[in-house]
Write a protein that binds this DNA or RNA. Structure first.
Lengths: 167, 167
DNA sequence: TCGAGATTGTTCGGATACGAATAATCTCAG
DNA sequence: CTGAGATTATTCGTATCCGAACAATCTCGA
């Protein structure tokens, strides 16, 4: 756990405070660092790439998924973006308010809602996505090239397992 | 990106839609899967371990950090938990309301706030943490044992780099 | 001793996040 | 043809999340 204490200090304090318990430090390290890293990376992107266009990480991801698959169904966008449909409704409201996306009810099935980016949304993605990808390259270069694909695969293992458990 | 499309379908569609752009798929895979995995793991823990005691992931982490370092200063808790001080104020309000933690102003420095778990908070952690750690073991066992420590180290690289950039 | 600058925690506004409840729509078996 | 069951998106309530602004406190150099 990064923070005001070193890793050694942290493990030492944990051992001292919880000596009556069996702990798996390695297991703790996997989950706590996963969440810390994701949080830190999201904040980094929001501050350095997305702030200028007023987008949150999730708003960007939703625009990205829509850009790739449009016209996209909201149930698919939510799943591809890893957020609930309730959350997507709110994020799309924000994007519509910014004039970046538009929704319409499907002709084929009245339950479904389709989403497209607006022209303004397309223009934004043409410049924002390359900047975002450059930052992705910078960040991922911290991971040794030989480990990178494996790292992504291990992350997918975690996602797939926990999401399968939810079904 | 896990979702309603396979990885191959996704990369194919991206290539087809954005053929005018150079893309680094590997870089994209690192950041998008990092966030997806973290989100999925958090939801998994909230549903399967934390829901019963009404705690969110972050509320648990704050309790955990406080348990280890108490009496803990709020600036340190926020840093160790990877959240802002503004967020911590809100989370501590929630924990106080639940009777699980208490705050007091430091005698030594009037700017600082100290936090302790209450007796009820300690009791909860005595049973909740082992259950949480068991789930951590289950989740991390998805990562091959030989890769686990390295995986956590790579995550720390991402966190440290992005947080250093924020300073 | 004093004041500028720094640090701390809180409040505010607005965005994300989700489960549960709800209404609308579709499917399919009888 | 009809109704039960399933699926969809939205609303609601509540929690988290953060940056900016603010008030209180501390430090340190002049």
């Amino acid at each position: 756990m990064a923070g005001s204490h070193t890793l050694a200090e942290t493990e030492s304090q944990i051992t001292s405070r919880l000596s009556h318990m069996t702990l798996d430090f390695e297991a703790m390290a996997v989950t706590s660092n996963l969440f810390r890293a994701a949080s830190a990376v999201r904040n980094h992107f929001e501050r350095n790439v997305l702030a200028e266009s007023g987008l949150s990480w999730t708003a960007f991801v939703v625009m990205w998924v829509t850009w790739i698959w449009e016209p996209a169904e909201t149930r698919d966008i939510a799943e591809e973006s890893g957020i609930s449909k309730a959350t997507l409704t709110g994020v799309l409201k924000t994007l519509e308010k910014m004039g970046l996306a538009e929704r319409s009810r499907s002709d084929a099935d009245g339950r479904l809602v389709l989403v497209n980016l607006t022209e303004k949304g397309h223009k934004l993605m043409e410049t924002l996505f390359p900047a975002f990808n450059r930052q992705e390259i910078e960040i991922s270069s911290l991971i040794p090239a030989a480990d990178r694909a494996n790292f992504a695969d291990m992350l997918r293992l975690l996602t797939n397992y926990t999401q399968d458990q939810a079904k």
